[in-house]
């Protein structure tokens, strides 16, 4: 298992480094031959070192005789996807429909989704957290939040 995963990580690192190197750096013309004036030199060095580490991972995975995994077991990717989606929706909601609506919906929704379903407690905590955060930011710190849709 470990061998398999480390092989994959190594391959991804190699691929990503090569991709970044070829796409993201400014073209260096003849003028920028010195290290000091070459904007691509330092990122290039980092990417090469990353590739060496990636190769190292692959090599150690191939040479390793133990099959034990040091990757966390029991991760539930589907739940992760759902959680990330919920957080993304909240952030988008915060941006597009404003702090109040998004927060008043998000806290109960996430809590419900995670299996905590005591209506009174949830409602109470939602209201307190929402208004407390709003008060601290807008009234105490004078930082306007995106209060309402606009």
């Amino acid at each position: 298992m470990k061998r398999f995963i480390d092989l994959w990580i190594g391959a991804v690192v190699l691929l990503l480094a090569a991709l970044l190197y070829t796409t993201g750096l400014p073209k260096t013309d003849g003028m920028a031959t010195s290290i000091a004036m070459n904007p691509a030199w330092y990122p290039w060095l980092l990417l090469v070192m990353a590739m060496i580490c990636g190769l190292g991972l692959i090599a150690s995975a191939l040479l390793s005789r133990t099959g034990s995994s040091n990757v966390s077991a029991g991760v539930r990717p589907a739940r992760m996807g759902a959680g990330l989606l919920a957080i993304c929706l909240y952030v988008a909601g915060f941006w597009f429909v404003g702090y109040w609506a998004a927060t008043l919906l998000f806290i109960p929704a996430l809590s419900w989704g995670l299996g905590h379903r005591k209506p009174v407690e949830v409602a109470l905590v939602t209201l307190i957290v929402t208004s407390l955060v709003w008060l601290v930011f807008t009234q105490l710190l004078h930082i306007p939040l995106r209060d309402w849709p606009f």
Binding site: F106, I107, L110, S111, G113, H116, E121, V129, V133, L145
Partner: peptide, 29 residues
Amino acid sequence: KLPEPLLMASVVVLVTVGTYSVNSSAFDL
């Protein structure tokens, strides 16, 4: 002491608002 789901939700709210307050930037979010 908050039940975990509520705590997690509050953390998300706090970090979103906190990040927004620094630079009012969608990119940062």
